[in-house]
């Protein structure tokens, strides 16, 4: 496999019952690349994104990530999802957890589980005694979470519950919650579409920072200005296929297909 390809999508298809939403889509996502997906409502953008981490089970094709085919039901998808952060339109912060707990929950749960497994193995002499303790894990993750909060200037919200936050704050916390897993790629599904206009900027700024740091990003968005600025490549989806793709200059400046021209005329 080519060494700089992070996710390789091969002939991916997805149907909901009779409805064929993705029709044999193939695309490579390279390390550090910023791919923006645009297209009309219902063209299959979210479905493609959600198939990448198998939140939707593909009905056909392959998704190769770290030499494993995620579409294979035998693969332990949880391990791979830990390396693929996802940000949702509706934020989806955990309502019963405060901000700090939201960020810490997944890394702590997963590390403590690993710790228990290691302890059990050590007990049966199948492995070495774990070097870290539960307290260390909690302290480390708390420190990491606080650093992430400091990064977005929300340390003072650590103990607060999501329902008291603004949309922009929620989405920025959702982004750093995903970052707490140290993902190799971040998937964004219309991260600013549910926000009041005055809060769109703060979320896009954080995403730009991530982009500048070299994070691999796949972003479904209607923010064409952002796409122009950040994208290495723009995919135009239409009727379940990638109808056209290229640099922002190519896709926005010199659209070839009639469908893309019509789409751009509507959104620009």
């Amino acid at each position: 496999m080519e060494n700089n390809v992070l996710i390789e999508v091969r002939a991916l298809s997805k149907s909901f019952g009779e409805l064929e939403v993705l029709k044999s889509v193939s695309v490579d996502i390279r390390k550090g690349e910023k791919v923006v997906i645009v297209g009309a409502s219902g063209s299959g953008k979210s479905t493609l994104l959600r198939c990448l981490n198998c939140l939707e089970d593909p009905t056909g094709g392959e998704i190769i990530f770290e030499n494993e085919n995620l579409a294979d039901p035998k693969v332990n998808i949880n391990i791979h999802r830990q390396k693929m952060g996802m940000v949702f339109q509706q934020f989806n912060l955990f309502n019963n957890k405060n901000v700090l707990e939201n960020i810490m929950l997944a890394p702590v749960t997963i590390r403590l589980k690993r710790l228990r497994t290691e302890k059990r193995r050590a007990l049966f002499k199948k492995g070495d005694k774990p070097t870290e303790t539960k307290e260390q894990i909690l302290a480390e993750e708390r420190e990491k979470a606080m650093k992430l909060l400091a990064r977005i200037g929300l340390e003072d919200k650590a103990e607060v519950y999501p329902s008291t936050l603004s949309g922009g704050q929620k989405q920025r916390i959702a982004i750093v919650r995903a970052l707490a897993m140290n993902p190799k790629v971040m998937l964004f599904d219309e991260p600013t579409s549910a926000l009041d206009p005055e809060m769109v900027g703060e979320v896009l700024d954080l995403m730009k920072q991530l982009a500048n740091e070299g994070m691999t990003m796949v972003i479904v968005t209607h923010e064409m200005g952002f796409a122009r600025e950040v994208a290495d490549r723009v995919l135009f989806m239409d009727g379940g296929v990638i109808a056209e793709q290229g640099t922002p200059a190519e896709v926005f400046g010199a659209p070839k297909s009639e469908r893309l021209k019509a789409f751009l005329a509507k959104v620009l």
Binding site: Q90, F94, K113, A178
Partner: peptide, 29 residues
């Protein structure tokens, strides 16, 4: 909300881990 389970799973938690920490407490409440 369905998004709660999706968020948990997208972070790499298993169905059961998400049920235990997120879904059951909210459902019971």
């Amino acid at each position: 909300d369905d998004g709660q389970m999706e968020a948990g799973r997208s972070l790499g938690l298993s169905t059961w881990q998400t049920m235990r920490s997120i879904i059951i407490p909210q459902a019971v409440r």
